[in-house]
Design a protein around this nucleic acid. Structure first.
Length: 328
DNA sequence: CGCCAGGCGAACA
DNA sequence: TGTTCGCATGGC
């Protein structure tokens, strides 16, 4: 499956990834990642300092590069390879789903979330994002991360015509809601996610100003540990899930749930099964109706019933119960 | 306004 | 080993 130039869109440099069974909106907006925003019929986000615009097309997913940070971020791969890895385009979704347990709840979740995928995120961004996720709603996590990037991330130059279109749409929408603040002027600018070494040098007060509250010292400690080499995120994938989990949980503010999110969303560890309030609700209501399973019974069930792609199954259950309750 | 949000960690029993 | 509570902040 090779990316091809998108016919008729050559001027903008769009490439097309032919892929089926991929619900881009559900995947980018399902609480795995927090930096994608819907702009008209597209999704805009930043990967390793590259500002991309993605679109679901009839044939697959099209991608444009809108800008790049000056300094080199991440591994030296092509933009195409970068997207393919991040979006996990080479995963055979049907084969994964075929390994799910054959029970009614799982079937319902699969039917309701057709095309839902797991992303393969950058470990550092994923770690910080989920440290900031505790007792926060997804909208608030997005706000925290956006502020963090605006204040400490490297600016990404964006072509003038893109910026103009972008800011018109954005400010129009915000003005209509009466939410345009002075600090939002220029919010159309894009920023790379700040590096660990950058955040290691900021104060807790500056982090609190990003509205992350009591999580600020956790983020700071993580930045200092990673920047000083006390934890090598680039080598964590070499460890077994249990060992990698122990390493992550040595960081303050990182418990079992957040560690499992990082193991699953950044390292693709399928034996990581993050159990949060939604998944606990789903497991209880779907598999233990009118009973009250003990936490350890529930954990044992979660760790055995969904193998060998438990992490994937978890994301389906999470997304499924969230769509059942239109709270968002 | 009060409630609660994709938790964690400390302080208890 | 198993609960309870405080922690910041904002959306609804």
């Amino acid at each position: 499956m090779d990316a091809t130039e998108y016919p008729g869109a050559r001027d903008s440099g769009a490439i097309l990834f032919p892929v089926s069974d991929y619900d881009l909106a559900a995947t980018l907006d399902s609480g795995q990642a927090f930096r994608w925003r819907a702009v008209d019929d597209a999704w805009e986000g930043i990967l390793a300092g590259n500002f991309f615009r993605l679109r679901q097309t009839t044939d697959g997913i099209s991608a444009e590069l809108l800008g790049s940070a000056a300094s080199q971020h991440g591994p030296r791969t092509t933009h195409s390879e970068q997207l393919r890895d991040y979006l996990q385009l080479d995963v055979d979704l049907a084969a994964v789903i075929a390994t799910f347990p054959e029970d009614a709840p799982m079937r319902a979740a699969v039917a309701a979330c057709r095309g839902l995928r797991l992303l393969r995120q950058e470990p550092w961004e994923c770690l910080v994002s989920f440290i900031c996720s505790s007792t926060k709603q997804i909208v608030q996590i997005r706000q925290i991360i956006a502020r963090l990037c605006e204040r400490f991330g490297e600016p990404i130059p964006v072509a003038a015509e893109v910026r103009r279109l972008h800011s018109n749409a954005e400010r129009g929408a915000q003005k209509a809601k009466g939410k345009l603040e002075p600090s939002d002027v220029g919010s159309d600018r894009a920023f790379a996610f700040p590096s660990a070494s950058r955040l290691a040098g900021v104060s807790e007060t500056e982090l609190r100003a990003c509205k992350m509250g009591f999580r600020a010292p956790y983020v700071l400690a993580a930045a200092q540990t990673v920047a000083s080499g006390g934890l090598d995120l680039a080598r964590l994938h070499l460890l077994a899930t249990d060992e990698a989990r122990v390493k992550l949980m040595e960081l303050p503010g990182v418990g079992r749930k957040i560690a499992d999110c990082v193991l699953l969303f950044a390292y693709g560890k399928q034996d990581a099964f993050p159990v949060d309030v939604w998944v606990r609700r789903a497991l209880t209501e779907l598999y233990f109706p009118h009973r009250r399973p003990t936490p350890q019974r529930l954990e044992r069930f979660a760790n055995t019933h969904f193998e060998p792609n438990a992490g994937f199954a978890q994301q389906y259950l999470f997304h499924y119960v969230r769509t059942l309750r239109p709270k968002k």
